[in-house]
């Protein structure tokens, strides 16, 4: 590679990094602007101010933001856990056993994954009000399974295929039952795949807005994205943009760090499930 080519690639790389970071940098910058500085028409704040963070963590907006943070964490973790457990058994069967109906299960997962969320929202909105699940945690956890379960089944099936199954057979030769071989040999081998799947499923639930905004009405169960959508200023003359930006940063940065730490695995998980040679 010539020196000139090398420089071209470096330029391309820098452009991509700027592309990816620019909107994130902007929302961080906006979150550090004081109320009087919000409309300075510039990218950077004139003076760095923490007032937006104070407002959402202990000020007027805390009553909206903090319960939403708790709801989002709780609801997404439970939905992720349920779908990972269900998907683990299903993916084991798909990757390992030969039985009729396997194709049906995978096709169903595909169909559910492309299902328009809003088409589920309408009937659930009505049904949840009748049976008392409207604005509750289970009222969101159940529909979240439609988001997390299909991708978990795919991703895990792909990961499970990579496992050296001879070890399972070896265990069976040594007298272990199918179930014992699964629990004692395969589960430890599969743990990294399960962990990656859990991260991907958690993101998808964490990202949800349509269910969150439609099936909740109070801070009893409203998740963060829905709460962000409903933020308004302390008074009608005050722009809510600063506090929204601060809240956005708080919910974004941990996820970004998580993705960067596990980037290799997440890329493998995202692509394995969809394209496989």
């Amino acid at each position: 590679m010539t020196a000139r080519e090398k420089w071209l690639w470096v330029v391309a790389g820098v452009v991509i990094v700027i592309y990816a970071l620019f909107p994130v940098g902007w929302i961080v910058s906006l979150s550090l602007k004081s109320a009087s500085d919000i409309s300075n028409q510039q990218f950077l704040p004139s003076v760095v101010s923490w007032e937006n963070y104070a407002q959402i963590l202990s000020g007027d907006a805390a009553g909206l933001f903090l319960p939403a943070l708790r709801n989002s964490f709780g609801i997404c973790l439970i939905a992720t856990a349920i779908s990972c457990v269900l998907a683990m058994f299903a993916a084991y069967a798909i990757a390992r056993l030969d039985f009729r109906g396997k194709k049906l299960i995978l096709s169903t997962a595909l169909a559910v994954a492309i299902f328009p969320v809003i088409s589920i929202v309408t009937p659930l909105f009505n049904l949840w009000r009748e049976i008392g699940l409207y604005d509750t945690w289970p009222g969101l956890i159940i529909p979240y399974l439609s988001l997390t379960l299909p991708i978990s089944i795919w991703t895990l099936s792909a990961f499970f295929r990579e496992i050296p199954w001879e070890m399972e057979q070896a265990a069976q030769v040594d007298g272990a039952t199918t179930w014992q071989a699964f629990r004692k040999v395969i589960v430890p081998l599969a743990a990294p795949g399960v962990f990656t799947t859990a991260i991907i499923a958690f993101f998808i639930a964490w990202n949800d807005f349509a269910y969150g905004i439609s099936l909740t009405s109070t801070s009893a169960s409203r998740p963060v994205p829905a709460a962000l959508g409903l933020f308004s200023g302390a008074s009608q003359f005050e722009s809510p943009n600063g506090p929204i930006a601060a809240a956005a940063v708080i919910v974004t940065i941990p996820v970004v760090i998580l993705v960067l730490v596990f980037q290799r695995r997440i890329v493998a998980g995202l692509t394995n499930g969809a394209v496989k040679g």
Binding site: Y19, A20, V24, I27, N207, P225, I244, V255, L260
Partner: peptide
């Protein structure tokens, strides 16, 4: 670094991305 950068938009909640561009 390129792969890491590319994953950042993926990790940002759609609502947050929408707000960032709107603002």
């Amino acid at each position: 670094p390129v792969r890491a950068a590319i994953l950042i938009p993926y990790a940002v909640i759609t609502v947050v991305s929408a707000f960032a561009w709107q603002f």
